[in-house]
Design a protein around this nucleic acid. Sequence first.
DNA 1: TAATCAACTTGACATCGTGTCAATTGACAC
DNA 2: GTGTCAATTGACACGATGTCAAGTTGATTA
Lengths: 194, 194
Amino acid sequence: MSSEEIDTRTRILDAAWRLLEQQQGQGVKMGDIAKAVGISRQAVYLHFPNRTDLLIATLSHVDEVKGLDKRLAQLEAATNSTEMLRACVEIWGNYIPEIYGMAKAMLQTRDTDEAMAAAWDSAMNCLREVCQQIIEYLASENRLSSEWSVDQATDFFWSQLSITNWETLTKDCGWSQQQYIEKMTSMLLKVLVS
Amino acid sequence: MSSEEIDTRTRILDAAWRLLEQQQGQGVKMGDIAKAVGISRQAVYLHFPNRTDLLIATLSHVDEVKGLDKRLAQLEAATNSTEMLRACVEIWGNYIPEIYGMAKAMLQTRDTDEAMAAAWDSAMNCLREVCQQIIEYLASENRLSSEWSVDQATDFFWSQLSITNWETLTKDCGWSQQQYIEKMTSMLLKVLVS
DNA sequence: TAATCAACTTGACATCGTGTCAATTGACAC
DNA sequence: GTGTCAATTGACACGATGTCAAGTTGATTA
């Protein structure tokens, strides 16, 4: 029976997540989350000191449930650097739409909230490390185009994978998920690989 | 003497602009702008109905003072499509840092303000038209890489010129303005031109 | 059975920024 | 002198976050 009783903290995180995705990260207030859980607004503050910490905890929660780590671990299976780059774009590119609402909310608070900025930067740094590994792998196979240093190539690769870039291409330009991944992959290969 | 007396509306716009650039678009309140002009907060509302309209008017004001139109008119002088692309990246890329604070503030309010979203989209659409012209020019010279349709190439070109992309590369990755323009130019040429 | 404790509730309140309203002042024009 | 216009002062409403105090409820424990 203990599996029936999900603790309130988790229910809050699930509700926050659901609302954020439903509303694309727009206008999700503490009161809305509380209402969705069925508790009072103040009760939320018994579990999270403030909105920022709740959002950050939601990100960890989602990463855990969705298993980003596991997905990225698949990269090890790649037999060469370009395969790894392809796989990375596909895994990350397909992850973005699943976390878009939450990411959007975090990006919005980031500008005015020091703690959020730090949390976001640290999350994005994980992605950057993956990018860097791939670029280094590429360089070790002597396939990194001569115009790039490892650092700059990493910068470029990582910047292309930004959520706002995905947003521009899919939401503003109307690209399908498949188009995004295909175009992004072939573009990166063309630019980075000699 | 009439040239001495700058009207209050203009002084508000100048102050808003100055503060926005000074503070990189962060935390510029109506009261701050009023104080900078030397009038009461309420007096600002005698000239602009709300913050959004003030920001939008500031954008027009800056565009006018900085002469973006004039700068983009230089594109006509290009003798071929790739020269035009180069010139476009240089002109726009060098324009971004001059309007960054304002743009940042607009992007922030965009998410919660319908009117701002519309104004921003329309401003960005001007840039998009320039991008499209260049891609069409490229296509007319049979130099558009075969993997791209005109529309998709325009989408990609335009998305690369986004302010957030510039922000990521220069602010987060530490690229210099010159590096940004050089890398962006050579990347776009490599990807788009056959 | 009674005391205790944790989770939660209710209601009130502070803070901050935007936007509104009413009454007033001072200068300039006719 | 009267009207008008730009600006001023001060008060206030609103929405969202966050805090605080006092009370309820249900399960555990002495």
